[in-house]
Amino acid sequence: MKKLNLIKEYIYMFLISLLALLLISSLIFKFTILNSNYMINLLDNNNYYELLYNDIHKEMVNNIPSSGFNETIFNNIFDINTLKNDTKKILINFYNNEETNLDTSNLKITLEGNINSYINSNNIIASNKEEITNFINLIDKIYKDNVIPTSILNNYKDKIYKLNIAIIIIIIISLINFALVLILKRKNIKNYITIPLLFCAFIYFFAFIYIKCSVDINNLIIYNDSITLLIKEIFNNLIKYLIMIAIICIELDILVELIFRNKK
């Protein structure tokens, strides 16, 4: 009977440890990639917008050889400030589960004006107006697809919203269980605090080592330079948080040991 109670005790301790791991992991995601301010700060603190501007401009220029125009048609159709404002607007709408659409009417109007000006000043005969309209739409699409790939965002919007709800539920369940532990397991409270903390520390430390050894993040290339930079920064930050939280868990464990050292 005593052994059975001991086994039940350990099983409950294991479940509390799992809950602690789930809670800390949820909070990491909640305050990083599920947080619009974190993402906006990440973009502001690296030269993301400059890289994005270069990526978009380069992709637009790649369409010049087949168009019969030259690069001057892209003068003043967009700038880094426009990019910043559009990106922030899209991100905030995305995290608020709202429609993520860009208004690029200024870009199209300016581009059309530049094209007409180029045609007139170079005495070009543009017999097929539809081909010029198609070209303008192509450039517009390049801008929209690069600022934030809205088609991908719209697919993930619902999932992010549901994930946020799941995290809130996890927090509530965790708080209820920790309160139950405080009330029912007062005699053994030291074990119920230190063991989950050490458990989380071991798990995060293992995850840090495993990811560092398995993933070649430095040579990663996804889509273009700006997206690659963003993904690398998020990845490196998450890995940093893993080891930081492992260390914090160990420090908290030591603190608890010191607090309870004179108590039986």
């Binding site: 301790m13 063991i195 050490l198 071991f202 293992f206 040991e257 050292r261």
Partner: peptide, 21 residues
């Protein structure tokens, strides 16, 4: 006995972690 207690808790957490992994 305190050292034994700490070692026990570290061993239990390590066992839980390896089991979970």
């Amino acid at each position: 006995s305190k050292i034994k207690g700490i070692a026990e808790r570290v061993a239990i957490s390590f066992f839980f972690a390896t089991f979970f992994i």
